[in-house]
Amino acid sequence: MQFLVGGAGKSSLMLYSVNALEADKLIYSWLPMQTFSSMSGLQLKASVMAGMLTEMSNCEAYQEEIESLISEIDEISFSQGNEKTLVKFNGLVRKVRAL
């Protein structure tokens, strides 16, 4: 396996990592964190998790489960974050960890 990577910056390291993960047929997510800079609390957590899952949605083995989770988490990312929503989010976190 050969990788041609120029420079020594973060982008080059990320590209190297992505190539290595793809070569090993592993799932990965790459999120630009600037997207989430204006968020906080439950909205931030839900949006990051939905983004992470969206990036992983090309994983055929879990595609249906991932798409279902994205839909549920997206709903939470637009909610007010009351106690009921927090309990639902924590349940979804457990489902994501089980993937």
Rank of each mutant, 00 (worst) to 15 (best):
M1P: 12
F3E: 10
F3P: 01
F3A: 13
L4Y: 12
V5I: 14
G7I: 01
A8Q: 07
G9W: 00
S12E: 13
M14Q: 09
M14T: 02
Y16Q: 07
V18Q: 11
V18Y: 06
N19A: 15
A20D: 10
A20R: 11
A20T: 12
E22D: 08
E22P: 00
D24I: 05
K25H: 14
K25T: 11
L26H: 07
Y28P: 05
Y28Q: 08
W30D: 11
L31H: 03
L31Q: 10
L31F: 04
L31N: 07
M33R: 11
M33V: 13
F36K: 09
F36E: 04
S37N: 09
S38L: 08
S40V: 06
G41L: 15
G41C: 15
Q43N: 10
L44Q: 12
A46G: 07
S47A: 14
S47K: 13
S47Q: 10
S47M: 08
V48A: 10
A50S: 10
A50N: 01
M52C: 07
T54G: 00
N58P: 06
A61C: 09
E65D: 05
E67Q: 15
I70F: 05
I73G: 02
D74C: 08
E75M: 00
I76N: 02
I76M: 03
I76T: 03
S77P: 01
S79T: 11
S79K: 08
S79F: 08
S79N: 12
Q80G: 09
G81H: 05
N82E: 12
E83P: 03
T85F: 00
T85Y: 00
L86E: 11
V87Y: 08
K88D: 01
K88T: 05
F89H: 12
R94I: 10
R94K: 14
K95P: 04
K95S: 09
V96D: 00
V96K: 02
R97T: 11
R97C: 12
A98V: 03
A98T: 08
L99N: 07
